[in-house]
Every structure is written in structure tokens, then in C-alpha cells.
Design a protein around this nucleic acid. Structure first.
Lengths: 219, 219, 219, 219
DNA sequence: CATGAATGAGCGTTCATTCAT
DNA sequence: AATGAATGAACGCTCATTCAT
């Protein structure tokens, strides 16, 4: 294998960009948008602040790159696995939310960073990127919900409202910290059940809970 | 009536503090956390920036005061009205959420400001205030949910998880803007139904929707 | 006499602005446009750099203020003295240039600063101010030259060309440094004679030189 | 022919230096001194910024090289053509200025660049180079003027003053932009006449103007 | 009580320059 | 001979905070 001169940037360039994006994600996730200054990002990456501007023309460009990276990975993680066809609309919704929760378990910082950016969006390029993603993501979700309603599998709720509420909740999901994988799994299952139930025509117990004991108690 | 020198500040002192807090809320709600500088807050209050530091030792203290003010009003607005005893736990939950939505309709800026602060929490005092509120608010809600579960009126879901999800969602609620009161009411009803349904043992249609037509369509 | 609350800014404000403008003029005149950073200007004024931005919203505004100050004083200095009516167009031109040279003797730094700004003009506000001054100043001069030509007192040369050449030369005049007032006067007289002669229909010796000895020799 | 290892740089070295100098001239002429950064110069030359420092130890050295190049070409262009002996001092002056104006028509950018550098002179090496050129160029011109004065062909004006004024004016000449060659020629002739007249013992109309109509009007 | 002048740290960004490759 | 990644200082500007009045 040889170097690809046609690719956008050399190996070292791509590696640095990735490193900077990664450091930015970490600072955003751990310290919030207001703390994500070039100085702090550079310090975390052990480079000089000037190097960030060298690789990203403006801060807006850096934030856009972070957004693109995070959203790209999220989209890939949430896509319906090949060959699996969900048997109902609620099952499809549940699958999607489970995949999202699982992605958060392994890439929670990315989602936190994405949420932080979306909240304090400032530059024009970022604003447009966010709006585009919102429009597309929301449209897909709304169409899916509406279809499920037409099949009588979701109850009558404004799909756009549900989509907005769900997307907000997804942005907050990484805040649920757990000590071990087991607890994280239990939290995820409960969380998924909440939003499936919210729009279900009939409420049923989640698969992880014992229907004979409706009272929940901390493990 | 005379001034109380022993009280925490004179009348004029309290009035100034209230005015500054109010201006801070407005700037936070309208322009976001990043724009809430002393200069902008002072300009909106038509006072000098130095006066803010005079009344609030640090920015952290001002933000904490805003938080206390907003949360105090919210608590009052959400309290069960005297003499009314809800007939069931879901009904109590629904009532609470309706009161919250109504409070947002009239004091949306306050909730937006509160959410902005909670997102971008930076100083130590604010962090502690947020944590304290979270603990207390969550504890009440958790106890209420657990009680409902013990009466078999809420399904088995981690109450703490539900509380956290609900509180996050409440913070986002003011983002639903509507052109008129009617639409706002419809959105609120739908929104309330989502979170009541999420934890209900049996799903039922909201009062505003026709059970014979399960497909939702824009009015 | 009492303070004027209606005036634009307090006494101290106006004094600071004047001081900053003065320091800026000095740095511009002595070290050039490229050296006129806030840091250097502030250092010369023995203040902190931030104070400059406090009194002038942007650097553009500071430069514009410098320009307005310098041009205002120059205009006042070059105006025809009251009650004196020059007897001919060349005499009027000569008087104007003498007054300009005299102003440079006492305010040379201001003209140097003005010239530096006009050369490296960068901000939009400054560009407009410069363009406006150019248009007005050039128009007056062109009209004056054309009138003199119509009276047969100036020779046939494109008035706009002459105006441009003269204005450029005026900008450079403060570069002539002299050790004493006497030498400065001699230089000024010679300089004036050059530009009067350049457009005169008949060349004559300047008043300070001996017509019997046409060969100039250093004093 | 073989490379000269003893010479100051190989062929390729000299070619690179020339290319960099040329790009610097273009940037200086078109975008001004403030915009002449290594990044922009390198971009125009399609090379890396580091290469500039490789060939010119400092920015000061590059600017000095630009100055030397431009002044060398200007000197050559203004030299009295071989075999032509002007019949008088004013005629010699006029010839020199005509050749200068013609050089500007074909190499205006170089003069603009030179003027930009001389205005915003910053490094010590450049300052010395400018001073040296000034001294030498001025000395020649002063000697020429003094000779003319001794022959009674120039009027009594401080030759050094005239030289300085003339050199400043030459630096500004490229700013006269014209739409076509014809207009450029007319401007040049007028401009030359101004500075010949300025020092002439008797004023006479330029060859392009009609002595019967002393009033100039735009063509 | 209140002002607003003043400071100094920090921001994103540009720059000349260095240096490993 | 040439690249381009990397640095650190400087830029204009904003900010929370201080303090004389």
C-alpha cells in the first residue's frame, strides 16, 4: 500500500486533524461549550494553539468538523442492521433507541459534545449544519411515526412534537452515568421503554421487568 | 413601616437585585448563555456594569440568584392547588405537568434561562446549587412515582431515571413556540400525554384526540 | 462654569480620548502605521491596551477620530485669514501653501500621521472618511486652479493632475526636518515656490532669493 | 556552460530568488504592504512559505532584495540613452522624467512596490538600504540641478529640496491610472511639465498645449 | 448607592520563522 | 532544494472585576 496523494491532506495532516477533533470532543463533553477554547483544546492535545488554526481555518470549521465526525458515526451506529426487518413499528422504534443507547455507552462523549454544540451554536456554518441535520433527522423520524400511526401501531400524537421531544432526550441520554455495564444496560432498557411507551397504543411491561411485580425498586 | 436594617439588604437593595436578576433572565432567554455578559445585562437594566458586582459579589453569585428566583417561582406554580385532591397518581402527574406547561406559557423566559444556566454550568457555587435542586426536586418526584407504582398506577420503571428524563424534557419545553394560545394548548396537551403515557400501566388517548381516528394530522 | 451633561462624554472621557488620539498621532508619525498597535499606543500613553477599546469601539473608530482631529486642525490653519483678500490667484496659492507649511512646522506629526493613515487605509469607516475628504479637498483645489486658469494667471495644466500632485507633496512635507526655525523657514519658502512656479505662467524668483545670483548654494 | 559553484547561488537558486522577488512585488503593488505576508507571497508563487525563509534569511532581507531589484531596473531605464546628448539642462531633466514615466507605464507595479516599502520601512537593513539609495540618488540629482543652476538654466532653489520633492512625486506617479495609452501619455506630459516648470527660470507652455488658449479643459 | 474609568487575563487569529523530512 | 508541520509572539477585542469618586 502506498500513500494517496489524491486524498485530502497527507497522513500526518489527517492524523492531526483527527487528534484535534478528538481533543475538542473531550473538552466539550467534560467541560462544556464555554470551556472549549483553542488554548484548552491545544493543551489537552499537547500542541500549540496556533496549530489548530493551521489545520482548521476558523473555529467554526473545527466545530463543523467535530459535528460531521460525531454525526457520521452516530448515523452508522443507528442504521438498521442488514437483513433484520423489524416486525412492527414499535419494535423498529425500540431497536433504533437500543442501538442509540448502545452507541452512547461506547461513545457517550461524542453525543455530549454534539449536544453541547447544538445548544450554543454560534457560527454561521455550524448553524447551517445543525439546521440541515435537524431537518433531515426530524423528517425521517416524523415520517416513520406517521406511518406507524397509519398502521394503528402508534397512538395519536403530533409526530413532530414527539420527534422533537425524543431528539432532545437523546441529547441528554449520555448524562446517565453508571458504574458497571450491567447497570448501564438496565438504565438503557428502561429509558427505551419510556419513549416506546410514550407513543404506544397499549402499554406493556418492558422485557427486563417482572410483570408480576409492578413496583420498581432500586437494585 | 420602616426599613429593616437587620434584614438582608434594604428595600432599594432588594429592588436592585430583583431588577438585575430580571434583566439577566431576559438576556439569557433571548440571547443565550454565551451572550450574558455583565455589559449586556447592565445595558438592558440601564445601569452600570459595576453595579452588578456591587450587588452580587461574583458572576457565580448572580447566576445562583437567578436560579433560586426562577426555581422558587416554578415550585410555587407547580404546587398542587389548595383544596384539590387528585383522584389518582396519573391524574396528579398530569395536573402537575399541565401547571408546568401553563407556567411556561406565561414565564417561558425563566425556564429558558434556567435551562441555559444548567447546561453551561461553570462556577462552583452554581454547580452546587444545581446539584442541590436536582437532588431535592428529584427526590420529591421519585417519591411520588414510587408511591404511584406501589399503588399499581405507574408501571415498573426506575423512578430516578424517569425523574431525570422528565426534568430534562421540562427544560426543553419552552422551545415549542406557537402562534396562538389555542395551538399552544394543543401542544401542551400532547406533550403532557407523552410523559403520562410513558409511565402509565395502560395507554389511553389524550382528551383532545379522537380515538376513532388514530392517525394524527396537522390541524 | 459648570459641567455640561449634554456634551458627548464627561470631562475625563474627553480628556482620555484626546490623550489616546495624541499618543496615536505620535506613534503613527514616529514609527509608522504598521507599528501603531494598541499595545504601543497604550504604552506611550501609560495606560492599559484595554482602555483604548473602552473609549473607542474599534481600531477603525480610533483611526477615524485621529483623522477627524488632524483634518479639523489643518482646515482651520489653512483657511484664508479674515480681512485678507489675496491680490491674485498665484498669491492666493502661495498664501495657502505658506499657511500649510507653517502648520507643519508646529504640527508636523499630525500631518505625518494623517499621511500614514491615508496610505495604509484599511477599515471601511476610515476608507469612507478618506474618500470624502479627498473628494471635497480635491474639488475645491481643482475649482480654484481652473478659475486661475480662466483669468490667465495659471498655465494650462490638467487641474486635477496638479491637485493630486500637490496633495501628495503636502503629505510628504513634514519629512523635511530642520535644525532651527530659520532653516525651516527657508525650506518652506523654497518648497512653496516650487509648486507656485510649477503652474505659473511666468517664472520668477522667490522673494527670499537674490535675483542677481541665480545659483543656489547651501547656507 | 556549467554551473558556477563560486557564484552567489546556483542557477536554480537565482531563479527561485527572482521568482519570489517578483511575487513579492506583485503582492505589494496590488494589496499593499500590510498584506505582504509570507503566506500570501508564497501562495502567489505557488511555493511553500518556508522556502522564502530558506532563500532569504529574514523578511527584511527579502524586502531589501525587492528594493535592490526594482531600483536597479529603474536606474537602467532612466539612464541617458547612449549617443543622445541633451541640448540643455531642462531638456535633460525633461528627458529623464519622460523615461521615468514611460518606465512606470510598463513597470508601474515595481514603482508602487518600491513606494510601499519606502513608506512602511521597518527593519534595520531596509532602513539602511533606503537611506543609501536616497543619498546616492539624491546626490546625482542634486549635482545635476546645481550644474544647471550654475549655467543659469535652473532657477535658484535648494537642489536637495527639489530632489526630495521630485523623488517623492515619482513614487506617487504610478497612482495615475488611465484607460488608454493616449490618455496616459497626456497625463505623463502634463506631469513632466509640472516638475520642469517648477525649477525653470522661464515658464513656457508644454509642447502639447496651445499657448493661445491658456485655460485647460478636459479633452 | 451608584457610576464608569481602568485593569489584566483570555479569546480566535495571523504572522515570521524553525526544522524534520 | 523544497516541503509543510509546528511554534510562540503579537494582533484587536471582550470580559469579569476593582475602585476612586
Amino acid at each position: 500500500m502506498h500513500t494517496e496523494p489524491d486524498a485530502a491532506g497527507s497522513f500526518i495532516e489527517q492524523a492531526r486533524r483527527a487528534q484535534i477533533v478528538q481533543s475538542t470532543i473531550e473538552v466539550l463533553a467534560e467541560q462544556g461549550y464555554g470551556a472549549a477554547s483553542f488554548a484548552r483544546i491545544a493543551q489537552r492535545a499537547s500542541i500549540s494553539p496556533g496549530l489548530i488554526t493551521y489545520h482548521f481555518q476558523t473555529k467554526d470549521a473545527l466545530i463543523s468538523a467535530v459535528l460531521a465526525t460525531v454525526e457520521g458515526r452516530l448515523d452508522a451506529a443507528m442504521a438498521n442492521p442488514e437483513g433484520e426487518e423489524p416486525e412492527s413499528y414499535p419494535a423498529a422504534l425500540e431497536g433504533m433507541l437500543r442501538r442509540f443507547a448502545e452507541h452512547c455507552r461506547t461513545h457517550g462523549g461524542e453525543i455530549s459534545a454534539m449536544t453541547a454544540i447544538r445548544r450554543e451554536v454560534q457560527g454561521e456554518a455550524v448553524r447551517q449544519a445543525v439546521a440541515r441535520t435537524d431537518r433531515r433527522g426530524s423528517a425521517e423520524l416524523v415520517a416513520f411515526i406517521r406511518e406507524g400511526q397509519e398502521h394503528g401501531q402508534f397512538r395519536a400524537v403530533d409526530p413532530a412534537l414527539y420527534a422533537t421531544v425524543l431528539m432532545s432526550a437523546m441529547g441528554e441520554f449520555p448524562r446517565f452515568r453508571a458504574d458497571d455495564v450491567e447497570e448501564q444496560r438496565r438504565v438503557a432498557a428502561d429509558w427505551v421503554s419510556l419513549f416506546v411507551n410514550a407513543i404506544s397504543t397499549t402499554a406493556g411491561p418492558g422485557e427486563d421487568t417482572d410483570p408480576a411485580d409492578p413496583t420498581w425498586s432500586a437494585p
